[in-house]
Amino acid sequence: MWEAGIQHIELEKGSKGLGFSILDYQDPIDPASTVIIIRSLVPGGIAEKDGRLLPGDRLMFVNDVNLENSSLEEAVEALKGAPSGTVRIGVAKPLP
């Protein structure tokens, strides 16, 4: 389960991407759907250096692409398709 509020994070995407990987996970509230979760951070990558994204965070959007009900493929496309420079990411943090 995740917090209702969405944290807005801006990262600078370079030639090596944003520095994290994702996975799809069965939604605990709606078993028929999936949620997109941050799986891991690349050591020394943009996301790890920034410090705000953590494994277990739920990915909600990338720039103007809503990922609340997306497939893993759609989420990967949104991340890979984001141009270099500032990328806006929304995440919901896990409940304590």
Rank of each mutant, 00 (worst) to 15 (best):
I36Y: 04
D57G: 06
L54N: 08
I22E: 03
I36N: 14
D64L: 05
Y25W: 15
Q26H: 12
L72A: 15
K49L: 15
P83V: 07
A47M: 02
I37L: 06
E77I: 11
A82F: 04
G51R: 04
L67H: 03
E68M: 11
K93L: 03
G90A: 06
A75C: 15
P28D: 14
K93G: 04
V62A: 04
V91Q: 02
S40A: 10
E10V: 07
P55S: 15
G5I: 13
L59V: 09
E12L: 10
G14N: 10
I6H: 06
N63S: 03
L23C: 15
M1D: 08
E74S: 13
Y25I: 06
E77Y: 09
S84C: 13
R58Y: 01
V65Y: 08
P94H: 15
G90K: 04
K80F: 09
I37N: 08
P28A: 13
Q7C: 12
E10G: 06
E10D: 15
D64H: 13
P31A: 10
G56I: 00
L95P: 12
D50F: 02
I22C: 15
P28V: 09
L59Q: 01
G45Q: 04
S21G: 10
A32T: 09
G85N: 07
L23N: 15
A47D: 00
N63F: 01
L72G: 07
G51T: 06
V65F: 13
P43K: 13
L41D: 00
V76L: 13
I22D: 00
A4L: 10
E68F: 06
W2Y: 14
E77S: 08
A92Q: 12
I36A: 03
P43C: 07
S33N: 11
W2T: 09
D64K: 13
L67M: 14
I22R: 00
I37Y: 09
V76D: 15
G19S: 03
K16L: 08
S70M: 11
G17V: 02
K16D: 05
V42R: 11
L54G: 15
A32L: 08
M60T: 08
D50P: 01
F61R: 09
S71G: 11
T34G: 15
K16M: 10
G81R: 11
V42I: 07
L67I: 13
N69Y: 07
L41A: 02
P83F: 03
Q26Y: 07
S71I: 06
W2R: 06
E48Q: 10
D57C: 05
I6W: 12
G56T: 02
N63T: 00
L53W: 01
I89W: 01
N63L: 00
K93T: 04
A78T: 11
E3L: 04
I9L: 09
V62I: 10
G85Y: 02
Q7N: 14
V62R: 00
Q26M: 05
L41W: 02
E74V: 10
S15G: 14
E3R: 04
N69M: 07
F20I: 08
I29Y: 11
F61N: 05
G45R: 02
I36F: 05
W2C: 05
K49Q: 11
E12W: 07
V91Y: 11
K13W: 03
S40E: 13
A82T: 11
N63G: 14
D24L: 04
E68R: 07
I6P: 05
N63C: 03
A82N: 03
E68Q: 07
L79W: 02
A78W: 05
N66V: 08
L18K: 00
G56L: 03
L23Q: 15
P94Y: 07
K80L: 08
P96H: 04
D57I: 02
E77D: 12
L23V: 12
E77A: 13
